[in-house]
Design a binder for these strands. Structure first.
Lengths: 182, 182
DNA sequence: CGCCTTTATGCAACCAGTTGCATAAATGAG
DNA sequence: CTCATTTATGCAACTGGTTGCATAAAGGCG
């Protein structure tokens, strides 16, 4: 499970509070790992209990915002986890199940849904490419930046794949539809 | 959630028992939707309670194997679900979290893990291509087969992407390693 | 000042999927 | 025939993630 380690990573990049983490999760790390504020608060408490992080300005009186920073034990744990082997998770996609169902029960409205997905994936692709243009106009200049770039490229590659696949699927499904109406 | 509908699809293709479903899930639909026997038995019971499927030979005496078939209500539900819109699920990948962590805490053993993943993805890619060669030597000849082919192609595309990405990642991480040892 | 909205925090219940274990019938080897 | 193995079924507990709701402080407006 990645959430605790994603939080440690984000807090090492910059110590901050739960709600700020939730915001940052919607960008950067959040491209590949999402978390609701619930998960984040719950997990921060657990990480604190484990002694991996600690709250800054614990009794700052005014304002309930509690910023956390990573303790040496947390850094050590993150290092351990990062080098740990993991099996690649098998593919799992509901759309493929729907396509198999379509194959068995004949034409449905599925193609409409895929058209709308295509639009969404195109949008996300454009977003990622825009970020890439903005943040890495001349590639990456340091190890850290190279790795960040790599993760972003993964996003571009994945969205490109989805765009290609949706187009292929629409071609197949629309051809059927033509035949049906002819 | 797809499991009930994946089961309905599989049972429409051919009525069978829980354990046989578990076996078939390791192929075909299982490329994109896995399920343990536990989930399958639990879900079959639920589908029966809902009146979507029914057990054949309910009191066949010898042998506890219970084969199920889909009832009209189940077929109707599958059709309803297939045309239903679904948001594309956001990407979610632990490896990307690890790469971001690597970027922050410096070199780890991560590259070893990615090398082993590369090997596994190459293996899976070869398997899918082999299946494609065997089952679709001349493309697909019917609507149903076209859709099955499409799903298989999604597998090929996804594994190809992973292979490309692993190679890219190894290049970045290995370059760092060279620098470190130089 | 007093009120409404937004931000930050959190509990509790739920849901889908996994893990560990159990048990009964079928099969097959000695 | 009998015992060990494999196949088929299933319960219970757990885990990670989601949803719905609640509450308290901060900020802005009349």
């Amino acid at each position: 499970m990645s959430l605790p380690h994603a939080l440690l990573t984000a807090l090492l990049e910059r110590p901050c509070s739960g709600s700020e983490l939730a915001g940052r999760f919607d960008r950067s790390i959040g491209f590949f790992w999402q978390a609701t504020h619930q998960q984040i608060y719950r997990e921060l408490k657990r990480l604190e209990e484990l002694g991996w992080i600690t709250a800054l300005e614990p009794e700052a009186g005014r304002g309930r915002k509690r910023a956390y920073q990573v303790l040496p034990a947390g850094r050590e744990e993150l290092r351990r986890w990062t080098g740990e082997a993991q099996e690649p998770k098998p593919l799992r996609d509901e759309l493929m199940v729907r396509l198999r169902a379509e194959a068995v029960i004949g034409p449905t409205d599925l193609v409409r849904d895929i058209e709308s997905r295509l639009a969404q994936h195109l949008e996300k692709l454009a977003l990622y490419q825009e970020i890439e243009r903005r943040d890495f106009p001349n590639g990456a200049d340091s190890r850290q930046r190279e790795l960040q770039h790599l993760v972003l490229q993964a996003g571009v590659m994945a969205e490109t794949l989805w765009v290609d696949f949706c187009r292929k699927a629409i071609a197949v499904l629309a051809a059927d539809e033509d035949m049906a109406t002819r």
